[in-house]
């Protein structure tokens, strides 16, 4: 595809709308994620954050609006085709392969990336390079001690890391992390985020997170959603000072359903 022109955003949306019947879950969402940046997406429950990720990754189709990845219009592409182009997500609720081992799971993602996963006439040992790369990813996330364990036997925090390992195996250009630390104890969550912070700067990251300490520490910019729309978008300092954000988070006419 195109040469890495830094002025082209890694990911952007243009007035994306979506509703289920009379329930509007996204209205006029326009946002821009520049290359290599770490943006946070925050907002109260039901604000439409996960819906927005579903729309960007193609798990839902928008009623209106367009989605661009590195300048290419991907609005009509299927989810797996978007992943092939480098737009990858993780899930708020573990969405893993319970009876595959951690190594098998990540190897599968690598086989899919390399186009080896359609090969049925050659044994997996011929693809040990894929497995070794998978092992490398697991090691970088400190998961190598459990590489040969079935996923369902992994501790919860390790499963959260495996979520990220699966996404990394696809070599993403843009990574959408849906509450990567959801359910992880407070002390472990900043550990998990330092792993995320250390990821290559070639990857642009948009993450959903409720812990404001984490958000202000790791995000270069924060997007606040309320009731399916973007309320405000700014640097951590701007967001911290914004009275509308305070209102949303500290009550005073708490608009849970917009």
């Amino acid at each position: 595809m195109s040469a890495p022109d830094k002025t082209i955003p890694a990911l952007s949306t243009q007035s994306v709308d979506k509703s289920f019947g009379s329930l509007v879950v996204a209205k006029g969402i326009s946002l821009t994620l520049p290359q290599g940046e770490r943006y946070a997406l925050i907002g109260p429950n039901g604000a439409g954050k996960t819906t927005l990720i579903n729309l960007m990754t193609g798990m839902l189709n928008p009623d209106n609006g367009r989605i661009f990845l590195g300048g290419d219009d991907i609005t009509t592409l299927k989810p797996d085709a978007r992943v092939k182009r480098g737009l990858v997500r993780t899930f708020q609720i573990n969405t893993l392969f319970p009876h595959l081992t951690a190594l098998e799971s990540v190897t599968l993602a690598i086989c899919e990336r390399r186009g080896d996963a359609g090969v049925w006439w050659k044994g997996l040992p011929s693809y040990h390079r894929d497995a070794e790369e998978a092992y490398g990813i697991l090691s970088s996330l400190k998961l190598s001690p459990v590489a040969y364990k079935p996923t369902h036997e992994l501790a919860y925090g390790q499963q959260r890391l495996l979520e990220i390992a699966l996404a990394l195996a696809t070599k993403p250009k843009v990574l959408l992390l849906d509450e990567p630390a959801a359910g992880v104890p407070h002390e472990e969550s900043s550990e998990l985020f330092s792993v995320i912070a250390e990821l290559s700067k070639d990857i642009a990251i948009l993450f959903i997170e409720h812990d404001m300490n984490v958000v202000f520490r790791f995000a270069s910019r924060i997007i606040v959603m309320v009731g399916g729309a973007i309320l405000v978008d700014g640097t951590p300092d701007e967001i911290a000072a914004d009275p509308r954000v305070r209102e949303v988070y500290l009550g005073k006419g708490h608009r849970a359903h917009g």
Partner: peptide, 17 residues
């Protein structure tokens, strides 16, 4: 392996491409 992936979690499969 991909088939077992489909059996284990059909939702995740498109998300790994």
């Amino acid at each position: 392996l991909a088939l077992r992936g489909i059996r284990e979690n059909a939702v995740r499969m498109p998300a790994i491409g």
